[in-house]
């Protein structure tokens, strides 16, 4: 059995470490995803872990094991956030499995939720609506205009799964304190799917045109920066481009990881480069949107 250690803090950055720990794909033996020492995971980490489990299931790999965190309250939080409810379908869970049901509360705006089709997207956006409005205004001090943009961003990020992945995916929305990177609270929308990824989705449309430079990074740039879609309909490709326009106004960040690359549209508080290539490969695509709380007046 191959052991794949999960970083102590699993978020949109350390997912690269998780990918590197995976080694070759498909794995040549059963894997143990070892989170026993993991102290914390962001929603990005939750949906990435499920994507890993789903990707292994979809290639017919032996069911992986997931060793749950041993730290006090960590596994319980993972259950509350909805991870364990879904993880049971893909992983053999090891460790003390808390029997808590997923809950919606102030910090967990949306527990991990499966996205299979447009109805799921409507349901997620509709369900989260009023609570999101209240939390964005009260907890993050954001204006009403941001609330609408949040819903639009959530909807488009989820639709990206439905339209492009070719399989189902996951979404989670949390609010937490970004002490180190930002010094204040932020809302995080994380989606992930185990699908074909941006490169394959756009290959027929773009690969020839881009030639030797065609890569995961080029595909991501085409989608996020240039709004290019695999569909001929000129109205397509608006979702990510629209999100990006909105986010730039609120000092918010969007990053997309697919295959071996990540493209980010980052504000000044984040040091993520616009494009990173040659990362360790990870299945499908992961979209992360971070909307920071309003800065307190000096």
């Amino acid at each position: 059995m191959r052991v794949v250690p999960v970083p102590g803090h699993l978020d949109d950055h350390s997912i690269d470490q998780l990918a590197a720990n995976l080694g070759s794909w498909p794995p040549d033996q059963r894997i143990l995803v070892d989170a026993h020492a993991t102290e914390w995971a962001s929603p990005v980490g939750f949906v990435a872990l499920l994507t890993l489990g789903q990707a292994l299931a979809e290639i017919g790999a032996p069911q992986p094991r997931l060793a749950l965190p041993e730290g006090e309250g960590v596994a319980s939080y993972w259950a509350k956030a909805g991870l364990l409810h879904h993880a049971e379908k893909f992983f053999e869970l090891h460790g003390k499995v808390p029997r808590r049901k997923p809950v919606e509360q102030d910090d967990i705006l949306l527990p991990v939720t499966m996205i299979r089709n447009a109805d799921d997207v409507m349901d997620v956006v509709g369900r989260i609506g009023e609570r999101a409005t209240s939390i964005l205004k009260k907890e993050l001090g954001l204006e009403a205009s941001v609330v609408g943009g949040f819903g639009q961003s959530l909807s488009e990020a989820c639709q990206n799964i439905v339209e492009h992945a070719g399989t189902s995916g996951w979404v989670a929305v949390h609010v937490y304190n970004f002490r180190r990177r930002l010094g204040r609270k932020a809302l995080v929308i994380a989606t992930s799917d185990a699908g074909v990824g941006f490169r394959r989705s756009l290959e027929a449309t773009l690969a020839k045109r881009i030639g030797d430079r065609w890569s995961d990074g080029a595909a991501l740039e085409s989608a996020l920066i240039h709004g290019i879609s695999r569909f001929r309909d000129p109205g397509r490709g608006q979702g990510l481009a629209g999100i990006k326009r909105y986010l730039s106004r609120w000092q918010a960040k969007i990053s997309i990881r697919s295959g071996t690359a990540r493209v980010a549209f980052a504000p000044s508080w984040d040091d993520e480069p616009p494009r990173t290539d040659n990362l360790a490969w990870f299945p499908g695509a992961q979209v992360t949107i971070i909307i920071p709380a309003k800065e307190a007046a000096e």
Binding site: A118, D119, M122, D123, V125, G126, G129, G151, S155, Q159
Partner: peptide, 10 residues
């Protein structure tokens, strides 16, 4: 749908 939102292409 029980919701009032115009979301998704479908």
């Amino acid at each position: 749908t029980p919701y009032r939102d115009l979301v998704t292409r479908q």
